[in-house]
């Protein structure tokens, strides 16, 4: 069983963090995963993207030409990467920032998620990445949400643990939105 997901957005906005989390959670469950980042030379604000490949056997290529799933956080990511999503795959589109609803393609599942609005509703705009990750793990069902929460607790410095409940809420909100969208 192999899964791969490509995530793209602004640097410094948590795209690389959720890629890390997903890969780490996969490893915690005893499976294999690779996380491969690509970003501009700027430390903040440039484009950032990463690829996560998960497998219950061995991970081959850490990069994928046509990803099975994509998390697209902003219009630039949508323009550049939406056409590359594999036929029959999944695109999670942050509709808070992206006007295009993905209807130009009918050969995949495109789900528009107002992630920024949902994050603000939960209490912090920075949770936008967690909303998207919650939706992805609900769809792919390769990693259990509990493991992702456990991984987050491990990677987050102790002093930031007070933010954990908000992150958990965001993950759950993303999952709930995905279930509703597919229902």
């Amino acid at each position: 069983m192999n899964h791969d997901v490509f995530m793209a957005g602004f640097g410094g906005k948590g795209v690389l963090l959720i890629g890390n989390l997903l890969a780490y959670a996969t490893i915690l469950e005893g499976n294999n995963a690779s996380y491969f980042p690509a970003y501009g030379v700027e430390k903040r604000g440039g484009a950032a993207n990463c690829t996560v490949v998960m497998s219950d056997t061995t991970v081959g290529s850490p990069v994928v030409g046509e990803p099975e799933a994509a998390i697209l956080m902003n219009p630039a990511a949508m323009t550049q990467f939406y056409p590359r999503v594999r036929r029959g795959g999944l695109a999670l589109i942050n509709s808070s920032l992206i006007e295009d609803d993905g209807s130009s393609r009918t050969d995949l599942t495109a789900i528009a998620i107002p992630a920024n609005d949902m994050a603000l509703e939960i209490g912090d705009s920075r949770l936008v990445n967690m909303v998207m990750l919650g939706a992805y793990i609900e769809y792919s069902k390769f990693v259990r949400p509990e493991t992702v929460k456990e991984a987050l607790k491990e990677v987050l410095p102790e002093r930031n643990h007070r933010f954990l409940p908000f992150n958990y809420t965001a993950l759950e909100a993303g999952a709930a939105y995905l279930r509703k969208a597919l229902a």
Partner: peptide, 9 residues
């Protein structure tokens, strides 16, 4: 850069 920057188990 691929093998150096990628993370895995």
């Amino acid at each position: 850069a691929v093998i150096g920057q990628m993370k895995e188990a």
